[in-house]
Nucleic acid binder design. Structure first.
Lengths: 170, 170
DNA sequence: CTAAAATTTGACAGGATTAGTAGGGTATCG
DNA sequence: CGATACCCTACTAATCCTGTCAAATTTTAG
């Protein structure tokens, strides 16, 4: 798991969909315009969200995207997993790229550092512990944030008078 | 704030320093060898950690790096802020890249979308809400993880017999 | 006291990965 | 048909990470 701008972009698009929910599909172009981000890039993100069943799409005129799940059932953790969770980093077993050569250690052997196997086990132990400790708490706290929470946060920030009505579908 | 491999690299180095604490400085080359990552890259990270006062360094033979604070006072959130917090994404006020051109929206004006100023306020409201909601819970849960917690996690994983003694300095 | 070795520091080049762009294809509705 | 909008693939730009070299600094050896 990683965490970058993609997740926030995706979440913002989902908020947009949630706020206009029940009033027909919204085109990617309109979301992009309202959220001030690139259409093409947003389409990629929406496509991935669709394949994972978070949104549905309709082609043709008056087409666009619609939320496919209850906003209370969409968590931030899920969005992060879908949009930012593809890569090998943060994958638990990962120890980081293995460098081919080492600079400082010269020809003379050092006494303290143990066999290569031991070093590897040691590194893996620490890497796993760090990863586990962080990943656990991270997913835990991100799972606690739902799309509905974000919508309410937006409403609180706006002080009620949103320009679309605040209706959830289903 | 962003979150990538850098923070885990840095945290692993700090764990290494904490575990060998009280037994003199440890060179970047040795840490890199034990943790199986690139020396040059690790040096960059250590340099930043030094400038922020988390570690101290000594040059020359028998030199290296030493933890500058109590492991209980170093939180994961601090490390993330130092190593992954540089870039403009996730900076609260950020609204994402501003696209230069828009593809689909054609010459014909749409009725629903309001003035440019309103759209911008709307976008900013949602972006801020998303950012605030996520950032708040994220830093909160990362602040709860200290370097000492990680060391104990490592010890738990290893089942006690670590190859260095488990001593904290000061 | 001088020279060599060990180590940090800094800079830079190059590959790998990710962020974002561009443009064409295809389904759907009037 | 033709316009709207999703869908797909390839491309460019930026960033991350690694590798390497040279300079500065301190300790140790001779």
């Amino acid at each position: 798991m990683k965490l970058s701008t993609r997740s926030t972009y995706g979440m913002r698009a989902l908020v947009e969909l949630a706020l206009t929910s029940g009033r027909g599909p919204v085109s990617a172009a309109l979301i992009a315009k309202r959220q001030n981000l690139s259409v093409a890039y947003l389409e990629q993100l929406l496509h991935r969200l669709k394949r994972q069943g978070l949104v549905s799409s309709f082609r043709g005129p008056q087409g666009g995207y619609v939320l496919a799940k209850d906003p209370r059932q969409i968590t931030m953790a899920e969005v992060v997993r879908i949009l930012d969770g593809t890569n090998s980093a943060w994958n638990g077993a990962d120890l980081g790229a293995v460098p081919k050569d080492r600079r400082g250690s010269g020809p003379r052997a050092r006494a303290r550092e143990g066999s290569a196997k031991e070093v590897h086990r040691h590194a893996q132990r620490i890497a796993r512990a760090v990863w586990r400790c962080v990943h656990e708490r991270l997913t835990q706290s991100l799972s606690a944030v739902t799309l509905q929470d974000l919508c309410e946060e937006v409403r609180a920030e706006a002080g009620e008078p949103l320009d679309h009505r605040y209706v959830f579908h289903i």
